[in-house]
Design a protein around this nucleic acid. Structure first.
Lengths: 190, 190
DNA sequence: CCATTTGCCTAAAAGCTTTAGGCGTGTGCA
DNA sequence: TGCACACGCCTAAAGCTTTTAGGCAAATGG
């Protein structure tokens, strides 16, 4: 009976890798146990239930994206920052589709509060410092940017933009251009 | 042994209602059988497997949204059409969260081709006729609109915008305003 | 070096998925 | 009207995942 040294954190990391390999919807406590060469019941000493595993993977992914975002934003401003941050989302989703799918998991308000979600919003606000937006327009813009990044990446991953011209990279670049233009000329409230 | 009159279509409809009630992730062939007061195995004469049920729900939802979109677009143009179409997405997701979640299901290229997804794209292009956009910018704009609608609704449903000012409706309105302004002043390619 | 905690184990119940094969009911053809 | 056949729902069963309960052995620390 060798002790493998399981911890919730190791399980979450392994779960994240599993998600990238087989898809988040196929992440299962049983499969994870198999990978650690351990009996399934053993994992339940570290995880309340299978949902906790999924939640931990989601939180892990949110942290990783936040870390990448922070790195990308360092020393950048304006459109430069906008484009870099946008690419963080897109690149992460392409590199780690399983983790990205995990990020879509609906968190409870408590889980959300404890997540890196707040950092995401803060970074988006930081980008907007390069533009001249007062509240409440700044919040509207934060929500718009979040929607576009999330929405575009999701549709792209769903295959929505493949096999049709122009290619997705070009749209992505032009959309970031368009967002930059929009933020510089945000329409006054009617 | 009363014949209930099961068909793939009826199962999909019932599955859609089930999804709205209990959440798409809890839609199961077993639960559906229970609702029809029929043994589980009986459903497998009408469905290849549980994934087919989910796919059929997704296709149903895509059709419903397309139908609503077509109705909303009739007799409208420009910003009016844009706002109406945007509301179709948002309202549908709020009325039918389970069906909306089903729409996120990744379809195979064949399934996607047979879906109402094409109608969605066509309608978005129809909206853009009210603006002056030549290719390839029109395609970029189609992708942007799809991203914003999908992304916003998804984040809203995830609870991202609740419990924080300004309220979501206001952001939605202002974002549609902003998109209208952007489409009227689409930046030239650098 | 022993006591306690900790970690992984066996065992078992319950639920979902899926396949195989059977039997009664309805339909259509004579 | 009667009969044959196809179809629709059934029973049975295997395999999988989740989750709980209780046990034994290995690590920890006094």
């Amino acid at each position: 009976m060798v002790r493998v040294g399981l911890t919730p954190e190791r399980l979450a990391r392994a779960g994240a890798e599993l998600a990238d390999e087989v898809g988040f919807e196929h992440v299962t406590v049983s499969e994870l146990a198999r990978r650690f060469d351990v009996k399934v019941a053993s994992l339940y000493s570290h995880l309340r239930n299978s949902h906790e595993l999924k939640t931990r993977i989601a939180l892990l992914a949110l942290e990783e994206v936040a870390d990448r975002g922070a790195a990308a934003l360092a020393g950048r401003a304006g459109k430069d920052a906008l484009a870099a941050f946008a690419d963080v989302y897109r690149d992460y989703a392409r590199e780690h589709p399983g983790r990205y799918a995990a990020m879509q998991l609906r968190l409870t308000p408590e889980e959300a509060a404890a997540s890196a979600g707040g950092r995401h919003a803060q970074m988006t606000r930081a980008i907007l410092r390069g533009y001249d937006l007062a509240e409440p327009d700044q919040t509207h813009a934060v929500r718009l940017l979040g929607s576009v990044f999330h929405g575009y990446v999701d549709l792209e991953l769903a295959g929505g933009f493949s096999h049709s011209a122009p290619d997705s990279q070009e749209s992505w670049t032009r959309i970031v251009d368009a967002l930059d233009a929009l933020l510089r000329n945000w329409p006054a409230s009617s």
